[in-house]
């Protein structure tokens, strides 16, 4: 997995590329740290270029969601397709992360 953080005023987008799985634990925490240190109002996880997410990956989204709720910013996901979209639908996390 690779990621790029794009800032446009207080709107932040994290663009992910590759698979989001258990082994991305460390880089994901790095993302959350960077988000915590910057001034964020809304943040979108762009999953257009993500091929696969496993249940640990979904867990990381939940951790991000918790951080957003605590710090008072909005988190949503966008662009999910294929396996990622069906995982979000299967676990109904698509509703929880609708923004």
């Amino acid at each position: 997995m690779e990621y790029r953080i794009e800032k446009n005023d207080s709107d932040t987008t994290v663009v992910f590329t590759g698979d989001i799985t258990f082994s991305e634990n460390v880089s994901f925490r790095q993302i959350l740290k960077e988000l915590a240190e910057s001034d964020v109002d809304t943040c979108t996880f762009d999953l257009t270029n993500v091929g696969m997410v496993d249940s640990a990956g979904l867990g990381m989204f939940l951790i991000a969601k918790e951080q957003a709720d605590t710090a008072g910013w909005k988190l949503s996901v966008s662009g999910a397709q294929g396996h990622v979209a069906s995982m979000l639908k299967l676990t109904k996390l698509s509703d929880l992360l609708a923004g």
Partner: peptide, 10 residues
């Protein structure tokens, strides 16, 4: 159709 929120989230 086994969709549903996983256990222990909400």
């Amino acid at each position: 159709d086994s969709s549903g929120l996983p256990i222990a989230i909400v």
